[in-house]
Design a protein around this nucleic acid. Structure first.
Lengths: 294, 294
DNA sequence: TCCATTATCTGACTTTAGTCAGATAAAATG
DNA sequence: CATTTTATCTGACTAAAGTCAGATAATGGA
């Protein structure tokens, strides 16, 4: 890595950690330790969460979280209840007072953001906002992890169902996954196929499937990016990895089909060197068929 | 402030504070609490510091700092000695082991920076580095404070001396402040004049002077930006403020002179609407004279 | 039904960070 | 030279953050 680039990143980290540290202190202004404030913040943003999830987000011990919740309960800001469907687990949500408190934290946050922008003129303000957006996108992009996973896991099914739901919305005549041949999990499990998951900080943000179509021909299917992660290059990363996987598996070519409604997908396939071929399957939703030599 | 801009800043703060928080934790990997690690870091970067200065940098209580130092002394990383010239004060510096430890922290820092860049391709890496530079510059620019101060304070004299030293270096025949008329502090003190200081997080990063030249004509002098703060718009901000001050003081015009070696300065004056006028003083170093109506 | 597992809670800790009131000694001031 | 100020240190605190070993109760199979 070039020295200059490393130095820029280090300077950035240093400056920003100082400034953000100073900002975080302002949350103390509401007379509550940061741990508690963070909890109010997360609950406000998410609406209501089960403790397991909350613990994962905050990265705290269960004993510690329990105590934080007790403290906030005493302040009348949160209420916990047994999770419906599992009597061991609990869910927390903000009370009316808690929501008011969350709004106060939000106002503080707005004030901070305003304080950063206020000293700048309109032009520099725009530049700062744009540069922050760019840094945000690229930092997120850099933290995307790809890995082959079990297509039957909860996360995997969640991705696939989100994908199907989106197709149902975008296709003119809806979408029924059962109408498509070979949609079962076994088709996405070696040796028949591979299910690739994209995660950002552990959260699933995309998926893709490579399957064996013929002895030396693979097929790429169900490449999807969660709406919250679009613009980060997730789909491109998934395609890169699936094609690498196909080459590794010894496929001479990979094929894929797509629907006319998925304009961005077609553009991407073309950009990646896929070329149109005649219909190679009976997918009722497919209108275009592509192939790329490995 | 527009909602969208505020949201971008908030998203940025949120993302970055999480990521940077995670980075800071890695400093704990060396088995030392963050407070101690920060001290090693500051000492390594500065070489050696007196406690007063160190306390200002870290923003800690003298008792706390004393304990931190004791702990690092026990680890053999720092040594303190009486400051020469003042038997009360002390200076700290890293020992050989301390320097080794500092290098280890630096290596960690490099590793982190590399970890951020590594997952990105060359093009996105460049974009990230550039965007980080932009954010850094603009955040710093936003934190510049201007205020009228006493021209005789230590900080003020430090700025002026740095300015004179720079002129001595850049002018073909050197520079001697005593050769210039009216360089005494009283000339920069109301009602004869005003000394404006620019600070970034309390540290002086620039200055400028407005003085009364004639009944209704002001003169702007000694506009200087510290090398570490160039590119942040400090000089522009100083000029803006000095001109506003001049208008407020009832001057109909302000004049200034400059040396041919200060190319950027001349460009700035022209950009700001100053136009050349005949010599109006006997400054031996001046080669160009400008004026701008208020 | 029994037993291992899971989710949360409680009590008893430790470490870190930070504050505050003197104590001590050198330096500056009159 | 006496007095005040300054720089640092020490002891005695507190609050926050975090850890760990059970305790308790619900769940999910065998």
């Amino acid at each position: 890595m070039e020295r200059e680039a490393l130095d820029q990143v280090r300077r950035f980290n240093r400056l920003v950690s100082r400034r953000i540290g100073a900002l975080e202190d302002s949350y103390l202004a509401r007379g509550r330790p940061l741990g508690q404030a963070r909890l109010v913040w997360e609950l406000g943003a998410a609406g209501g969460l089960d403790l397991q999830h909350l613990r994962a987000i905050l990265g705290v011990d269960s004993g510690y979280l329990s105590r934080l919740l007790r403290a906030l309960e005493e302040q009348g800001l949160v209420e916990t209840s047994v999770k419906s469907g599992d009597g061991r687990a609990r869910v927390v949500s903000l009370t009316g007072a808690g929501i008011a408190e969350y709004r106060a934290y939000e106002a503080l946050s707005d004030e901070q953001a305003g304080g950063v922008l206020a000293p700048l003129d309109a032009q520099r303000r725009t530049r700062l906002v744009q540069a922050m957006g760019e840094v945000e996108r690229l930092l997120r992009a850099a933290s995307i992890d790809l890995s082959l996973e079990d297509a039957q896991s909860g996360d995997a099914r969640h991705c696939l169902q989100s994908y199907y739901a989106e197709l149902a919305e975008r296709f003119e005549n809806g979408f029924d996954p059962h109408a498509v041949a070979n949609f079962e999990p076994s088709e996405m499990t070696p040796p028949k196929g591979w299910f690739l998951m994209a995660r950002e900080e552990g959260l699933p943000v995309g998926c893709g499937v490579l399957k064996r179509l013929e002895e030396d021909v693979g097929e790429i299917k169900r490449v999807w990016t969660a709406p919250a992660a679009r613009g980060l290059g997730v789909a491109t990363a998934i395609m890169d990895r699936l094609e690498a996987l196909a080459a590794e598996a010894g496929f001479a070519a990979v094929r894929l089909d797509t629907n006319g409604a998925l304009v961005e997908a077609q553009a991407m396939y073309t950009r990646r060197g896929y070329h149109p071929i005649p219909r190679y399957n009976d997918n009722p939703y497919a209108q275009h068929w592509f192939e790329k030599a490995m």
